[in-house]
């Protein structure tokens, strides 16, 4: 068996500027940190020539004969496309499992892509670099499958850590923010994640956002300019060790982000955020495209008990986490020497 995993991430600033509709004209920038919640891919032999993929999170299973043309639809479209890219020849069983529910804004679909590409890259003996893994994940998700998503999640999951990521039309650069362990620790202990219980459909939000971004005079473009400026400032503040600025930066990101498309926020989410600010948080935002998922809040340690109490009354569930810095990795592999697939001609 081979087990690969890739971390999900919390986006601190800049989300939305990683969509091609924006960065191809203006350049994009995000700051994100990966956390110790992972998407796992377990690969093992399967008898016969079939390829089997099952996923507990999507409650789905698929079995496919090698000779048949691959179908491209459904929740397993992504793993199918990746397996096809690596050119299957031998029976293979793939199991996908996630530590966070799908549709919760932590970048899970791209995390799946990175974990699976990492697994296939090692199995096939190609040993792709982090950059290559992220770029391939983007190519398959965005170009081949037409998902209306950005590029930040693929790079965050492939590289891991607290990063400043810049998006240019022909290049993505990843800068690991060189902050001391103490600064990273102090930042982490002031960030809280709460599960709203709402799963979103990021695709419909991002589709509208992409549409809005195409019109230069649309307010969405102005809001994205602001969001990018906030990402640049977040990088500078973190490098300067100014953690206390992060609450306000998150708040400014959120109020700009709310206006990007309909469905990012709604009165229930707004009221939760209002309660959070009243309860002691200095700022926060939904992580991911919006519409639900996880609410990220910045709060000084001495106020956290009171804040958690208030949000608990509202039915929000806190998820403990730590930062992680490994990115996509193979954590176990006893399939060394087994060649389940041929390289593509």
């Amino acid at each position: 068996m081979l087990i690969a995993r890739a971390p999900v991430r919390i986006s601190l600033a800049g989300g939305g500027t990683d969509l091609e509709a924006y960065y191809s004209r203006f350049g994009g920038a995000v700051v994100s940190a990966t956390i110790d919640k992972y998407f796992y891919v377990l690969v093992s032999h399967s008898r016969g020539d079939d390829i089997q993929v099952s996923s507990s999170d999507y409650r789905t299973f698929f079995r496919h004969r090698v000779e048949a043309p691959p179908p491209w639809d459904g929740d397993l479209g992504l793993p199918r496309a990746i397996l096809q890219h690596f050119g299957m020849r031998t029976g293979l069983s793939v199991f996908l499992a996630s530590q966070v529910p799908p549709g919760t804004g932590l970048g899970s679909s791209s995390t799946v892509a990175v974990a699976l590409i990492k697994a296939m890259s090692v199995l096939s003996g190609r040993n792709l670099s982090r950059h290559e893994i992220a770029a391939l994940a983007c190519e398959i998700e965005i170009d081949r499958l037409g998902m209306p998503i950005g590029k930040q999640d693929q790079y965050a999951a492939a590289f891991g850590g607290l990063n400043y990521i810049e998006f240019r039309p022909d290049h993505v650069s990843v800068e690991r923010l060189s902050v001391s362990e103490e600064v990273e620790f102090q930042l982490q202990r002031r960030l809280l994640l709460f599960f709203t219980g709402l799963a979103h459909n990021s695709a419909s939000i991002l589709r509208e956002q992409r549409q809005n971004s195409c019109d230069e005079r649309h307010p969405t473009v102005d809001a994205l300019h602001q969001i990018k400026e906030i990402a640049i400032e977040t990088r500078e503040r973190l490098l300067g060790g100014e953690i206390a600025a992060v609450g306000d930066l998150l708040h400014r990101s959120w109020v700009a982000k709310r206006t990007l498309a309909r469905g990012i926020s709604d009165p229930t989410i707004d009221r939760w955020y209002e309660v959070a600010l009243d309860g002691g948080a200095e700022g926060g935002k939904l992580v991911g495209a919006g519409g639900g998922g996880f609410l990220l809040l910045y709060c000084e340690p001495e106020r956290q008990d009171a804040l958690c109490g208030r949000l608990d009354d509202e039915g929000l569930i806190r998820m403990d986490f730590d930062f992680e810095s490994n990115g996509g990795t193979v954590i176990m592999n006893n399939l060394v020497g087994w060649q389940p697939m041929a390289t593509r001609a």
Partner: peptide, 11 residues
């Protein structure tokens, strides 16, 4: 006061 907090949350 609630109105002021809501306004702040909305930006």
């Amino acid at each position: 006061l609630a109105a002021a907090r809501a306004a702040r949350a909305l930006g």
